[in-house]
Write a protein that binds this DNA or RNA. Sequence first.
DNA 1: GCCAACGTTGGC
DNA 2: GCCAACGTTGGC
Length: 159
Amino acid sequence: MRTWLVKSEPDVYGIDQLKKDGRTGWTGVRNYQARNTMRDDMKEGDLVVFYHSNAEPPGIAGLAKVVDAPIPDPTQFDKKSDYFDATSDKAEPRWVMAQLGFVEKFKALIPLDVLKADPKLAGLALLQKGQRLSVQPVSAPHFARILELAGAKTKSPAR
DNA sequence: GCCAACGTTGGC
DNA sequence: GCCAACGTTGGC
């Protein structure tokens, strides 16, 4: 299995909301690279780091996992949605959403400055300058380190 | 609220 | 196919 990171603004959809909902469709991704990751690479059972962006402070809040195959994102056809895409064809939807389930909320958020200061997380995509992708891969060693920093209940997956 | 970095759009 | 203009992201 592989591991991933998704970003969300906690004011829009945070880890607490995912905990409450149990699972959710990851709507609103309108970037081709992120879409391709969700469509082609994220598999059921993959673990996903849940990052709070535009937060005070920003940081890693918990874990989710992929619970099902991706399906078309309904907001692309919803005229009232911010994510409406008039050029997407219903017969061949342009945008998909990953199906994510709640795994755990960390006892404490791992703040961005801690992530940046950790030598073992050097190279993590999230920390690259100008990195704006909302869905990113996380290497197995980086993932294990994040679990360690968080004191996570979840065990690092076998490679 | 500012602004750097980036992706996308559209004129040519 | 280039690239300037624009909109968005997201840290600060």
